[in-house]
């Protein structure tokens, strides 16, 4: 059950990143970092935060928003808000 939940959350996260960055799902992996590809610029970051807050129904703190420097980091941060990966 919890495994399924984790899988669902990972899929949701991937979709949120792909939507905000407008790249293929296959390009989303843990090592992908802010400003490492031109698609992940400040506009995309802003849309990404809105997307993540929406999809996982959380309200991120300022420090967490600016700390979200990679996909892996996004998972760590979202875990603090009770979203497991």
């Amino acid at each position: 059950m919890s495994n399924e939940l984790i899988q669902t959350n990972t899929a949701k996260l991937t979709t949120a990143f792909a939507t905000a960055l407008v790249v293929a799902d296959t390009q989303i992996h843990d090592d992908l970092a802010y400003n490492s590809i031109k698609e992940w610029d400040s506009t995309a970051h802003m849309l990404l935060i809105a997307e993540l807050e929406n999809v996982f129904n959380v309200m991120l703190d300022t420090d967490d928003i600016i700390d979200m420097s990679s996909v892996a980091k996004a998972k760590v941060i979202l875990s603090k808000y009770g979203v497991s990966f």
Partner: peptide
């Protein structure tokens, strides 16, 4: 540092 980064703030 971009506006949307930890470094900037």
């Amino acid at each position: 540092a971009p506006l949307m980064s930890k470094d900037f703030w």
